Amino acid sequence: MSLETLQTLNTQTLIGNTTHRGTAWHYRAELQGEEPNHYPGPIPVEDVARRLFGWQAESRAIAVERPADARTMTHLSPEGAPMRWMLVPGRQAIVRSDRRDGHVLGVFTDAYVPHPYTEYLLTSLANILDDSLSVSSAGLLKGGAVAWVEVSVPESITTPEGVEFRPNLLATTTLDGSLATTYKRTVTDVVCDNTRNAALRERGQDLKIRHSRSSRLRLGAAREALALVHTTADAFAAEVARLCQIDVSRRTWDRFLDAWVPTTGAHGEKLPPKALRHAEKKREALAGLYRHDRRVEPWAGTAHAVLQAVNTYEHHHSPTRGETSRAQRNMLRTVTGAYAALDTTVWKTLQRVLADERAAV
């Protein structure tokens, strides 16, 4: 069972601008209690602070259990042996101030400094961005160890090629050491709620701040690194136009599939039966999306459709494993940059296929 149950998703995430964008897939009114987590318009900043970030990250000393004698013991083990607690120097645990169940978010050295969610995810965005932008989503994952706030324009944008999207600025940080505080430009495809990189060829479109005593958010550097979220619309629209102008024939698509999901090993050897079945199933799913799915098919025959097919598959069709729900996995991949890296890898793979075809002519 995932930590991110439907109840958690309906109480620990806030979804805004639903008048234009509709409700999230996990929307369940009966699980939200007296206060709904969906907002017809922008999410008030004070609601994010009150409903999600109304607690502090606190540092606690760490102790280990050691054998003791009658003089030094502090407690008995389950077996009745005398034991004592000994502090571990130079180490700390980060916990939530509103929980008394011993839940630990992360364990670090004393050099680690937690970044307060309200300061780094709300106050910082208010200082960076202008009044035409609003909070469109916010949430907590992993019991509060991961948090994000997304800011975007209220209404979606449609390119001349018919791609409807919205530009965002995503602010995220963690208390489990899995990610530095990060501010990044993203784009959400409204039709299928996929997250894409702002532009495949751009670099420097995010800002990372380490959890250390010497790291601080410098607003001038932040504005320069992130530009304004409005410029994301121009960058993504140009990317879509460029990708839609690149022809991908049926033969090219088949060769891309061979490169992306090979059915043989590196040296042409036959894959083991289980791996072969997995590859064939994935190829079938990708081909179905490319040829028949409304989120991809309108642009079939172009490079944009290739990226859209893979991105849609990874968001909505790829298997989930362990205790991770699809919603948790997708959000974690977005905040960690895994989806941006995926887009870049798909694009490079397609470029190699196209280059090989040109060389063969």
Results as ranks from 00 to 15, higher is better:
residue 88 V to K: 10
residue 3 L to S: 13
residue 226 L to A: 02
residue 96 R to W: 01
residue 319 P to A: 11
residue 28 R to G: 00
residue 62 I to N: 06
residue 316 H to P: 02
residue 212 S to I: 09
residue 327 A to T: 11
residue 2 S to P: 15
residue 264 T to D: 06
residue 107 V to A: 05
residue 289 L to E: 07
residue 175 L to F: 03
residue 173 T to I: 05
residue 11 T to H: 08
residue 326 R to H: 03
residue 172 T to S: 13
residue 231 T to Y: 12
residue 31 L to Q: 05
residue 135 V to R: 10
residue 169 L to D: 02
residue 240 V to A: 04
residue 149 V to N: 08
residue 223 R to S: 07
residue 152 S to A: 15
residue 216 R to M: 09
residue 77 S to I: 07
residue 193 D to F: 12
residue 77 S to D: 13
residue 172 T to P: 00
residue 156 S to I: 04
residue 147 A to Y: 00
residue 98 D to S: 05
residue 94 I to S: 01
residue 148 W to H: 08
residue 305 A to S: 08
residue 204 G to L: 08
residue 284 E to C: 10
residue 329 R to K: 12
residue 103 H to F: 15
residue 11 T to R: 07
residue 57 A to T: 00
residue 12 Q to C: 07
residue 202 E to Y: 14
residue 252 T to F: 03
residue 151 V to G: 07
residue 210 R to P: 01
residue 162 G to Y: 11
residue 83 M to S: 04
residue 65 E to C: 15
residue 319 P to Y: 08
residue 20 H to M: 12
residue 200 L to H: 04
residue 279 A to L: 06
residue 75 H to C: 11
residue 247 D to R: 15
residue 306 V to W: 01
residue 36 P to T: 06
residue 223 R to L: 03
residue 334 T to W: 00
residue 274 K to Y: 10
residue 36 P to L: 03
residue 284 E to G: 11
residue 225 A to M: 04
residue 95 V to Q: 08
residue 321 R to P: 04
residue 219 L to P: 02
residue 328 Q to R: 12
residue 337 G to C: 04
residue 200 L to M: 06
residue 322 G to Q: 00
residue 226 L to C: 06
residue 360 A to F: 10
residue 335 V to H: 04
residue 358 R to F: 12
residue 28 R to H: 13
residue 28 R to E: 14
residue 193 D to T: 14
residue 326 R to Y: 02
residue 93 A to H: 06
residue 309 A to G: 00
residue 17 N to S: 13
residue 325 S to T: 07
residue 215 S to N: 07
residue 164 E to D: 05
residue 306 V to M: 02
residue 244 C to L: 02
residue 344 T to K: 14
residue 308 Q to A: 15
residue 167 P to C: 05
residue 239 E to N: 12
residue 272 P to L: 07
residue 349 T to K: 12
residue 105 L to C: 00
residue 121 L to A: 00
residue 258 D to L: 10
residue 75 H to D: 11
residue 293 D to S: 14
residue 301 G to E: 01
residue 246 I to T: 15
residue 293 D to P: 06
residue 273 P to K: 09
residue 94 I to W: 01
residue 195 T to A: 12
residue 143 G to I: 03
residue 211 H to Q: 02
residue 49 A to M: 07
residue 26 H to F: 15
residue 224 E to C: 04
residue 104 V to T: 00
residue 296 V to R: 03
residue 334 T to D: 11
residue 217 L to E: 09
residue 305 A to L: 06
residue 123 T to E: 10
residue 181 T to L: 09
residue 256 F to A: 05
residue 92 Q to H: 10
residue 164 E to V: 14
residue 106 G to M: 06
residue 187 V to R: 03
residue 251 R to Q: 13
residue 204 G to A: 08
residue 116 P to W: 03
residue 310 V to Q: 01
residue 301 G to M: 05
residue 244 C to E: 06
residue 89 P to K: 09
residue 272 P to N: 12
residue 303 A to T: 02
residue 144 G to T: 10
residue 175 L to Y: 00
residue 351 Q to S: 13
residue 297 E to R: 15
residue 13 T to H: 08
residue 9 L to M: 10
residue 114 P to R: 02
residue 271 L to M: 09
residue 89 P to C: 05
residue 123 T to S: 11
residue 67 P to I: 08
residue 283 R to Y: 03
residue 209 I to T: 08
residue 338 A to K: 11
residue 251 R to V: 14
residue 197 N to G: 14
residue 171 A to C: 01
residue 344 T to G: 01
residue 188 T to M: 14
